[in-house]
Computed example of a mutant assay.
Amino acid sequence: MSIIYFLIGCSVLLALCFLGAFFWAQRSGQNDDLYTPSVRILFDDEESPEK
């Protein structure tokens, strides 16, 4: 039974780490530009190799 308490504690700690990483990413501006990555594939490369 004590292993269940240990595993629950580990999973809560891991969830808090992921939540902290998510809030850090939001504050640092990771998701500010949602439009450019979706249309970047539509633009031609400036320096395309000629064959």
Rank of each mutant, 00 (worst) to 15 (best):
I4C: 12
W24T: 08
L16K: 03
T36M: 05
F18S: 11
A25M: 10
R27W: 04
L16E: 05
I4S: 11
G9N: 03
M1A: 04
S28I: 02
S48T: 08
V39G: 00
L7P: 00
T36V: 01
F6K: 14
R40W: 08
A21V: 09
L7V: 04
L42C: 05
E50G: 08
S48M: 10
S2I: 02
F6C: 08
L34E: 07
I41L: 05
N31F: 15
E50R: 13
G9V: 04
L34G: 03
F22I: 06
Q26V: 15
L14C: 11
I3R: 00
L16P: 00
E50P: 04
F23Y: 09
S38M: 11
Y35T: 13
F23Q: 08
L19R: 05
C10Y: 02
D45K: 07
Y35E: 12
I3S: 00
A15P: 01
Q26T: 09
E46G: 03
C10S: 10
R27F: 09
T36I: 01
I8W: 11
D33G: 02
I4F: 13
D32L: 13
F6A: 14
D44E: 09
F6S: 13
I41M: 08
G20D: 10
K51V: 14
Q26A: 09
R40L: 05
Q30P: 00
D32E: 15
D44G: 07
N31L: 12
F6Y: 09
L14I: 08
D45P: 00
W24P: 01
K51G: 12
S48H: 06
D32R: 15
V12I: 14
S38G: 04
L19A: 15
S38F: 15
F23T: 02
L7A: 08
Y5R: 13
P37K: 01
M1F: 01
I8Y: 06
Q30R: 13
